[in-house]
């Protein structure tokens, strides 16, 4: 039992005013994931830039149908992985997302996992597309 408010200030702030909301025109990769447990749906677009043979995530935008935590974690993961290589981006764990948000109620940690999966799906989509090229 904790004595904290249900949602941290950062979660509420990101839920009300997400910075990375929307779609990317001609996105290089798109991930669409759903959470089978609670019914949340997340769509995540990435823009990829190649620098010295390394792929770097230049931009991330999202749409999420879900609770305040799902929206806030979608927005936060976008900020956390921007400018990172795929390898580094995929190492961003759900606990990193939770930490960056101050705190996330334990029952909502699966929302952070959803954000992680969304990113992974977007990167996989990018890889699939680039193989075809």
């Amino acid at each position: 039992m904790t004595n904290q408010p249900y949602y941290s200030k950062e979660v509420v702030k990101r839920f009300l005013h997400p910075k990375n909301l929307g779609r990317i025109k001609n996105a290089d990769g798109t991930g669409k994931v759903g959470n089978p447990r609670c019914g949340d749906i997340m769509k995540l677009d990435i823009k990829v830039e190649k620098k010295k043979n390394k792929e770097i995530i230049k931009d991330v935008k999202f749409h999420t149908l879900g609770c305040a935590a799902a929206i806030a974690t979608s927005d936060m993961i976008a900020d956390l992985v921007k400018g990172k290589t795929f390898n580094k981006a995929l190492k961003v764990g759900y606990s990193d997302v939770a930490k960056a948000l101050g705190s996330v109620p334990s029952v909502k940690l699966h929302c952070c996992v959803l954000a992680q999966q969304g990113l992974k799906a977007a990167i996989e989509d990018y890889k699939k597309k680039s193989e075809k090229k």
Binding site: V12, R37, C38, C67, A69, A70
Partner: peptide
């Protein structure tokens, strides 16, 4: 629109409500 998100958004506007959403 998800119920818990509606409840949190309403709470931010000073209105207390409830939902049957899984979230």
């Amino acid at each position: 629109a998800e119920g818990e998100a509606i409840v949190i958004a309403l709470d931010q506007k000073g209105i207390a409500a409830s939902t049957g959403s899984a979230c």
